[in-house]
Structures are given as C-alpha cells and as structure tokens.
Simulated assay, not measured.
Amino acid sequence: MLDNWLSPVNLTALSLPDLDADHLGSQLHLHTETHFPDLNGVQIALVCLNEKEGIALRKALYTMSFPFEGLHIADLGTIRKCTAEFIMPVLIELHESNILPIIVGSDPALIQIQYKGLQHELQHINMVALDEFIRLSVPTENKQPDLFNEIVFQKKSKLFHLGIIGCQTHFTLPATYRLMDELHFDYIRLGTARANLAEVEPIIRDADLLGCQVAVLKQSEAPGQENASPSGFNVEEICQLCRYGGMSEKVKSFGIFGYKASLDRKAQTANVLAQMIWYFLDGLSHRKGDFPISTEGLTEYIVEVKSLDFTVTFWKSQRSGRWWLQVPVKTSKQQQRHRLIPCSYNDYKLASQGELPDRLVNALKRFL
C-alpha cells in the first residue's frame, strides 16, 4: 500500500560514487523503480516530502558512516504529492507498523501533519519543537492564527504538552510568553539552552514527537532557509539535541522542516540536515530501554519540598543514570505514560535543598 503514496529514490539524480559496505547508503532498505523493500524488522523509515530537497539530503546522508549495528533503516523515497492526503496515510501506516518515521520537508507548516499522523496512535501527545519562534498566539478574530493554534485550541485536542526549545526573545511577543505560562507549556530560550544543553535533555526525553525547524539554526550554519536569522544554534548544538531525541524511548516521530534547496549554498544546509539525522540515529542506537512504564529497575528517592508542603518522589535509572519525578496525584489511564516526568540530577539536588524547579512545578500543574 505504501508505494501508492511514494515515488522511489531517484538513484540516477544522486549520481553517487561506489559506496562501501560501511557507508550508510549501502545499509538502507531502498524503495527503487523495481523494488519496494520488505519492512519486516525495519525500525526507522526516511520519507522526504519534496524531490529537490530529498536529492540534496541523500547525497550528503548516503556517504556517511554506518556504525549502527542492529538498526534496520528504510528509505521509502518521496511523497508523490506534498499534501495531507498523501502524507497522512504513510505516517499512519508506519506508526501502526511500529516504524519511526523521519520526515524532511520544505514548508514549516508540515509539522502540523506530523502531529496529525501521530493522533491515530496516541490519545495524549507530548510535542517538542526546536524553533526560533513560538508559533502560537492568543486567538483573535482579525488575526491569522499561528501554526500551533490549530493544534492547541482544536476541540478535543489530543495535545497533552507543548515544549519549544531555542525561541528568541526578540521574535516573541510578551503575550505569547504569558499564554505559554497559562497553558503550563515549556519554552527554553536560545541563550538558556546554549548555556547548558544537558538541562534541555529532559524536555526532549518526554516528547512523543520531535519537530525541528531549520529556522532554529543560525544563517551562517544553514543558509538554505527563508528569512534566515543571524542568531541560532550551531551545528554541534543541534546535533546534540537531535541525539537526545534519538535516545528518548518515547519519541515516535522525528521531522525536519523549512529546508529550501534552492537557497542552499554548496549543499551546506543539506550536509547539516544529514548530520542531524545521523546523530538522531546514533542516539536511537544507544537507547537504554529504561522508559519507565513501571518503576521496576529504578531507585527511589523521597524528598520533602518545603515550598510545596509535601513530599515528592524521584526515580533514578541504574541503567542510564537518568532521573524522573513521579506525579504525586492519581493519574487517569490515558495519562499513565506521562506520570513520570523526566528531569535531571540538578533538579533532584534543588529539590533536596527545598525548592522544586519552576519547570517541574509547571509540569505537575498539568495533572491538577
């Protein structure tokens, strides 16, 4: 069925040199003119949403190394039409087959389709976007709604939480920050994130969906984007964040949006995107299998937080050293997969000193 919606990889346009067995391109299960791959055992599938951008990305990605023993990855080609009617069936079928899609597109708004594709799989969705903007605004009759308004304010929305990483204050109205606070959503400004990337990891670890806008990268790093900004993450930083996404046991979908091959210089942005995908795969290959569906295998730490006037329970994985905070109220069946909130060792230390970090207080309010 998938081949109804997808065009094969254009190997002629790639015109790659002969690849060794250790090159990533040699290890992919490819959708070609004569063959659609058997997806039994495949864990990850690359789907490009635009032909020109897909060719540029693959030229960079295929020549990278493949040290990911045990990972089975398919390149399913390019969506025949970049519309929801063509993209949604592909995403739904991949999710139903327990295959994680990596999707790359030129339009920033395509992240909405990435979200809708996961709605059929999950009742409550944690969504994290790496972006220079908070694409959300207070609904008004005389203003065009922002990108996330449809997701956040739709009736019976399945969005449980939204996190924005890399937003820049000079692009964000104070009313937007107030709205994010009222909704108990997370936002990490660019400077705060760059100062300590490790403290951003818990937010990404809690995501079901990770979407990255190329706009979150500075222009000098990724020129292949419209209205590029001189400020943003550099390549090393964005690759670390993508690796965090790959390591998360919860992430079921990874998307990169806003890449314009026609604006790219010497395929620089294509090479950046290829590195981002490579580090996402690297993180995925190092998953520890410690997503806490239960607390088995976790060490319990009980802390009395004076500012909240009750005790809270932290859990530490002996397998990975990662930490979680347990929601101290009864959760519904649908919320069970979110009842342990990822946090850091520094969060635990602050709580031990009598103060729960604002981010965790905000997280607890989502359950009250």
Results as ranks from 00 to 15, higher is better:
Leu28Pro: 03
Gly245Asn: 04
Gly232Asn: 01
Ile341Ala: 02
Leu197Tyr: 05
Phe314Val: 07
Glu121Asn: 11
Thr295Pro: 04
Asp208Trp: 01
Asp208Val: 02
Asn227Cys: 08
Met1Asn: 13
Asp75Gln: 04
Thr83Gln: 09
Cys242Glu: 00
Leu263Met: 13
Val104Lys: 00
Ile203Val: 13
Gly191Ser: 11
Gly211Glu: 05
Val327Phe: 02
His72Arg: 14
Asp3Tyr: 12
Phe86Thr: 14
Cys242Lys: 00
Thr269Arg: 03
Ser15Glu: 13
Glu69Pro: 02
Asp309Asn: 14
Leu118Met: 14
Asn149Thr: 09
Asp131Ala: 10
Glu237Arg: 06
Cys343Trp: 05
Ile103Arg: 00
Pro139Tyr: 05
Ser332Trp: 07
Ala270Val: 05
His338Lys: 11
Ala193Trp: 04
Ile44Ala: 03
Phe153Asp: 05
Cys242Gln: 06
Ser231Thr: 11
Ile188Gly: 00
Glu226Cys: 12
Ser157His: 10
Leu16Pro: 08
Asn149Glu: 10
Ala270Gln: 04
Asn126Arg: 12
Arg265Trp: 10
Ser352Pro: 01
His170Asn: 14
Leu2Met: 13
Phe66Arg: 00
Ile125Val: 15
His161Trp: 06
Ala60Met: 12
Ala175Gly: 00
Trp323Thr: 02
Phe310Asn: 12
Ile99Phe: 04
Lys266His: 15
Ile99Thr: 07
Tyr259Lys: 04
Gln275Cys: 11
Pro357Ser: 08
Leu217Tyr: 04
Phe148Thr: 05
Leu210Lys: 00
Thr192Lys: 10
Cys82Asp: 13
Leu284Trp: 11
Leu350Glu: 14
Thr269Val: 08
Ile341Cys: 02
Asn98Tyr: 12
Gln123Phe: 10
Asp290Ser: 08
Leu91Pro: 02
Tyr177Cys: 09
Glu296Ile: 12
Lys155Gly: 07
Gly166Met: 06
Leu284Gly: 01
Asp75Ile: 03
Met180Ile: 12
Ala198Lys: 13
Ser248Asn: 10
Leu190Val: 08
Gln154Pro: 03
Leu28Glu: 02
Lys155Ser: 13
Leu325Arg: 00
Ala175Asn: 12
His170Lys: 14
Asp358Pro: 03
Ile134Gln: 04
Asn98Asp: 15
Cys242Gly: 00
Ser229Leu: 07
Arg205His: 10
Ile55Asp: 04
Thr299Ile: 11
Arg135Tyr: 09
Pro174His: 06
Gly54Lys: 06
Leu61Thr: 01
Gln219Ile: 10
Ser106Thr: 11
Glu237Asp: 08
Arg243Gln: 15
Gly246Thr: 07
Gln326Phe: 01
Pro174Phe: 03
